[in-house]
Design a protein around this nucleic acid. Structure first.
Length: 411
RNA sequence: GGACAGAUGGCCGAGCGGUUGAAGGCGCACGCCUGGAACGCGUGUGUAGUGAAAGCUACCGAGGGUUCGAAUCCCUCUCUGUCCGCCA
């Protein structure tokens, strides 16, 4: 959530910054009005409550002194109605405020370029040159027989895939390799639930706005996680961390589940866009002043790993229009796919600033004061897409697939 | 899934329906004491909102209810513990 105090203090700045994310001024000005209204209503309520408390205390005194209570009772009865009235009014106003506020995305960092979609993202750096093929490279779904789409669909539905043989082994090798690599970058491995409740999903910003993209467990307040970011970040939900605990750096390998509602017919072939996929995730919790440095650290960690894996890739700074709901600044890492002759996203690393911290109430003790932390998250790599990248970049003319050297000891 | 027990501040632990935001202890911070420390003594020490501040308001697992007034009484839910059942 954005900071309402900042909005009311410096309305114009917030409006201009949020224009990058195409949030209309109208919504923000409505929000500002609601906030003002809410504060007024709350203040009225508090006044009535104060009176009620004060008068109620007199009952004890009167009783002790043997005084008559009748008059007082009548007086307090009147005020009670006021309290009830303002409670209702205030609650209504609060609900309106929260409904609106929880839909407003994070304020982009000043470094975020203007732009409406991915075509206006800024390419920061390109690493490794794509190899020259002496033959026409095949798409990953045309190679080998690791991927069994028919049976995945039979077991579940379309966009579920069975991976067999060396492919299955390679997938597991990648997970192990990535976790080991992350540990060497200072991230501690954690094993977390892959179902979380709505409060956790609210904390990281998936709810309430993106419910249609989540798989929900019927009859329970539980959802399959769309990313381990939800579990890892909410580990600290409603906590006040000690200053010396920061920064926290953790990593986890989990399956992720997404309905891909609205993705239409995109990437229908292959395993680039699946309802279920493994992803190794990085999460960091830092003091506000350290978060941008941590973002760079995470990006370079992921990039180094891809370099070790010998996969050509590039770093891309997302423009305002392509920035996710919770993100303040995001750097995507894209890998080269020979069959598409394109770079495709394999990792997305974001600094969410205090946006998630405010929603999830994650704070730290700064001397006497409690301050909101900054949270960051990033795919250390989407495992399925890494598999695709390896298959396509390491294919040989006779359709076999070689394996990056660093993975040899893992398979 | 069934039965019983419980849920209070960083922790332990009191708490008759009325100066209890909450005794007491531990821990922690600061000060005094000391050559230095321990001991001892003193002061302070939850979260959030609002306000320039004093203060005011809310919060004793969560949500409702009774009452002028609820940590305290009633209802629902959640969680934890123990026993039974089931089970990787």
């Amino acid at each position: 959530m954005i900071d309402l105090k900042l909005l009311s203090r410096d309305f114009d700045t917030v409006v201009s910054k949020l224009q990058k994310k195409r949030v209309s001024e109208e919504i923000l000005s409505q929000l500002q009005d609601f906030y003002k209204e809410y504060k007024e209503k709350k203040s009225e309520l508090e006044k009535a409550q104060a009176l009620q408390n004060e008068k109620s205390k007199l009952f004890g005194v009167y009783k002790r002194e043997g005084k008559d209570i009748g008059e007082l009772k009548k007086e307090v009865g009147e005020n009670k109605k006021r309290v009830a009235f303002f409670t209702d009014v205030m609650r209504e106003s609060e609900e309106k405020l929260e409904t609106l506020l929880s839909q407003v995305p994070n304020i982009p960092d000043d470094a975020v370029p203007e732009g409406v979609d991915e075509s206006e993202n800024e390419i920061l750096e390109t690493i490794l040159t794509p190899r020259e093929f002496s033959f026409t490279p095949k798409a990953h779904y045309e190679l080998e027989s690791w991927l069994d789409f028919e049976r995945g669909t039979k077991l579940a539905k379309s966009r579920f895939t069975v991976i067999r043989g060396k492919g299955a082994k390679l997938e597991r090798a990648l997970i192990n390799y990535m976790l080991d690599f992350n540990r060497s970058c200072g991230f501690d491995e954690v094993s977390v639930p892959i179902l979380t409740n709505s409060n956790s999903l609210f904390g990281t910003g998936q709810l309430p706005k993106f419910e249609e993209d989540l798989f929900k467990i019927e009859g329970e307040d539980l959802y399959l996680i769309p990313t381990a970011e939800v579990s890892l970040t909410n580990l600290f939900n409603d906590e006040i961390l000690k200053s010396e605990e920061l920064p926290i750096q953790i990593t986890s390998a989990t399956p992720c589940f997404r309905k891909e509602a609205g993705s239409g017919g995109r990437d229908i072939r292959g395993i680039i866009r699946q309802h279920q996929f493994y992803k190794v995730e990085l999460v960091a919790v830092t003091k506000p002043e350290d978060s941008n440095e941590m973002l760079d650290k995470m990006v370079s960690c992921v990039s180094k790993m891809l370099t070790e894996l010998e996969i050509p890739h590039r770093k891309v700074l997302l423009c305002g229009g392509d920035l996710g709901f919770s993100a303040q600044k995001t750097i995507d890492i894209e890998v080269w796919l020979p069959s598409q002759e394109k770079y495709r996203e394999i990792s997305s690393i974001s600094n969410t600033g205090d946006f998630q911290a405010r929603r999830a109430k994650i704070r730290y003790k700064d001397g006497k004061k409690n301050r909101l932390v900054h949270t960051l998250n990033g795919s250390s790599l989407a495992v399925g897409r890494t598999l695709v990248a390896i298959m396509e970049n390491f294919q040989t003319e006779n359709g076999e697939i070689e394996i990056p050297k660093v993975l040899e000891k893992y398979v």
